[in-house]
Simulated scan of single mutants.
Amino acid sequence: MIKVEGLSKTYKNNNKEIYALKNINIEIKKGEIFGIIGLSGAGKSTLIRCLNRLEEPTNGKIFIDGKEITNLNNTDLRETRKDIGMIFQHFNLLSSKNVYQNIAFPLELEGLKKDEIDKRINTLLEYVDLEDKKFAYPSQLSGGQKQRVAIARSLANNPKILLSDEGTSALDPKTTKSILELLNKIRKEFGLTIVLITHQMEVIKDICDRVAIIEDGEIIELNTVEEIFANPKTKTATEFISTLKINTQEEINYQRKSGSKILRLSFVGENAKKPIVSKMVKQFDIDVNILSGNINELISTSIGNLVLEISGEDNQIEKAIDWLRKENIRLEVI
């Protein structure tokens, strides 16, 4: 659906070239929700804006449905953009127009007749659960309602792709969850491909199939969300994941008993719901003290994290660790 090859973006500052993006290579599948996460200034907004050429790449190629869009003229680019909807952090609604008029705007540009526009808007308002706000103005709406209007507007022309530029960053956690549920519903029912950027790992966890982590303009890690959570390869990935866990510094500073070991365990899928600790205690002559734990529900599976202190004879501790590994439990001795 979307293919990015060798994409770079540079800016000039005092005759110096500053890289915003460096040699980005990504393939995004049809119907996938693909996340791009990074800290402020990492290049994620530049990347997503290059996908519809709101930003012009310096080098590289972008393909949409097999068509290279980096060499399209303005007329052909406008035609291609009809297949690409976009939502923004601050909604970008026209304050002087009501909900109906905001959603109607792209349809009017297409030259649709009024009865066609009415029918389409009524359908979209029902879909985003805002029928009663049809003639309200943006100033009369909550943040979540504004974003629902923006989503309805982005769907007006029946796009194949939806780009979300920090689409939930201005919302509270409860509203964020409802917007993510709506985006997932859109993906499932319309088959849209969704690309979203965020600095919130909670968003990635709740909705994405795969994620790319961007740092200093480069993709430093790209994998399924499940694999990133279970086996992060970079320090940045680990730090993002740690924002979803309770503070592990206390675990590291914990004054363990003499001869004991502290383990951090990661459980994937069904393993996250099995009584692993109970089985281990019964099978080996060891004592276990649970220091912390949580389970993160991803869109396709569960990832459990548990920090334990185990004490006993050295050979029993080693046998318990070997057993955990044979049970496909990923572990780290802290």
Score class of each variant (00 low, 15 high):
Gln101Tyr: 11
Thr75Trp: 11
Ser95Thr: 11
Gln145Glu: 02
Gln145Tyr: 01
Leu54Asn: 07
Arg53Tyr: 14
Thr70Glu: 09
Ser142Phe: 08
Leu130Ala: 05
Lys97Ala: 15
Thr70Arg: 05
Leu130Asn: 00
Arg120His: 06
Leu93Pro: 08
Gly144Arg: 06
Glu131Cys: 10
Lys134Gln: 07
Lys119Leu: 09
Leu109Arg: 07
Asn52Ser: 02
Phe91Asn: 01
Gln89Asp: 04
Ile64Glu: 04
Leu130Met: 04
Ile64Val: 12
Ser96Asn: 13
Arg81Asp: 10
Ile84Asn: 03
Glu126Leu: 09
Thr75Cys: 13
Leu141Asp: 01
Asp132Val: 11
Ile87Met: 04
Arg78Asp: 15
Lys97Tyr: 06
Ile103Gln: 00
Asn52Trp: 04
Arg53Phe: 09
Glu55Pro: 12
Asp83Gln: 10
Phe63Gly: 08
Thr123Asn: 15
Tyr127Arg: 03
Tyr100Thr: 06
Arg53Val: 14
Asn71Ala: 11
Leu112Trp: 08
Ala104Trp: 02
Gln140Thr: 05
Asn98Pro: 03
Asp129Ser: 15
Asn98Met: 04
Asp115Arg: 13
Glu131Arg: 08
Phe105Trp: 02
Lys82Tyr: 07
Arg53Ser: 15
Gln145Asn: 02
Glu131Asn: 09
Ala136Arg: 04
Ala104Asn: 03
Glu116Ala: 01
Asp76Arg: 05
Gly144Ile: 12
Glu110Ile: 07
Lys113Gly: 12
Ile62Ser: 07
Ile84Met: 03
Asp132Phe: 09
Leu125Asp: 02
Glu68Asp: 13
Pro138Thr: 03
Lys119Gly: 08
Lys133Pro: 08
Ile121Leu: 07
Asn74Lys: 11
Leu107Asn: 04
Ala136Trp: 08
Leu107Met: 07
Thr80Tyr: 14
Asn59Ala: 12
Leu107Lys: 00
Ser139Met: 11
Asp83Val: 13
